[in-house]
Design a binder for these strands. Structure first.
Lengths: 194, 194
DNA sequence: TGGCTAATAGGTCAATTGTCCTAGTCGGGC
DNA sequence: GCCCGACTAGGACAATTGACCTATTAGCCA
């Protein structure tokens, strides 16, 4: 097996396990078992557990950048792109009900651990924020773009947390409908002002 | 020192540590050091770590029940009571920016651990939800009371998560203003209909 | 004072953790 | 065929964990 393959497999397995169990609760043994390699072999690819974490965060950053770029391409209007973001809580509903939001739960955990990589993890959150700011700017909300962006981002975190706690699919759907209606109000207000 | 005292001190220290570090990251040694007793003495008061967790959750449940009862007494109108709930994200802003929401982060962590006490932890979340439902019912929102309650509860979770990630006080204040305006809209609509 | 029980201290235990080392295998270039 | 570097396996290591035990003290009651 080529080195790149094993390394990628380790990162993928760690990504899943960090999401499902949390970072500190995932052991080297867990990852090694998932990839089916010996624990010792691990040390060849990653010197420390923190190194794996950094690689996982890098991968998540790249994945999200790809996702946002795709939305930029496939959805022409900014309101449609924002709607894509809103609807991921439905697309990923099953996983969110089981493990919460992968971005939110990681930033929360690393923050509590006061882990050196917490700032890097926050960058994933900031990536979504900045992308949303751009969409609202294109939508024509002017100085309110940042406020609206944080509002939508915070909304997604709240929905994910309650979805995990109560496992209520209807609640998620209602919240999506509700924020889409809010988004439409923001759009029409911006277009009336512009 | 009386037995009740030491036990209470252990629970208080564990409460703080579980909030600041997380449950699984807090060790017996951490709690013992905080209370200034020997590790061995621990076993006399609590047989297992899970037993401490249950005691902490019970304490949090009791604390929140007291808090909600106080709001029931001091605030006459339901909209004022709901506003009390909304404003705790400002009252506890410093701690929330450091550690997130004590209720949300615990339920998320225990859910990932698939811990036996996760349902009990969820009861704190449910306590707030049911209280909010009652307030919205008194407010006269009829069948929408449950939807509104979950909306406010999810809002608080989202604000706490982003407050911790971005440490943006102005964001928190804006969100509070915004949801208070929403609450006022709900109130006037309910009173117009009633 | 003597005795009993609640409470505490300190240490042991096996298990698990992240880290690290060494011996070995494999495959392509000379 | 040989060699060298990439890769892997398996285990050693100290540290930490939750759990558990025993000896000792403190406080109260008779």
């Amino acid at each position: 097996m080529a080195a790149g393959d094993t390394r990628k497999q380790i990162i993928d397995a760690a990504d899943d396990l960090f999401y499902g169990l949390g970072f500190s609760q995932t052991s080297f043994a867990d990852i090694a078992a998932a990839v089916n390699i010996s624990r010792g072999n691990f040390y060849y690819h990653f010197k420390t557990k923190d190194e794996i974490l950094e690689a996982v965060i890098d991968k998540r950053l790249a994945d999200r950048e790809t996702l946002l770029s795709r939305w930029d391409e496939t959805a022409a209007r900014p309101e449609d792109r924002i709607a894509c973001f809103i609807r991921i809580v439905i697309a990923n509903q099953t996983k969110i009900m089981a493990y919460g939001c992968p971005v939110g739960t990681l930033t929360t955990e690393l923050s509590k651990l006061d882990h050196p990589a917490k700032d890097k993890a926050n960058r994933i959150m900031a990536l979504f924020r900045d992308w949303l700011v751009r969409q609202f700017e294109v939508l024509g909300t002017g100085a309110l773009a940042k406020d609206h962006a944080l509002h939508v981002l915070g909304w997604s975190q709240g929905v994910a947390t309650l979805a995990q706690a109560f496992k209520d699919e209807a609640y998620v759907q209602r919240e999506v409908d509700s924020i889409l209606a809010w988004l439409d109000g923001v759009r029409s207000a911006a277009q009336a002002a512009g």
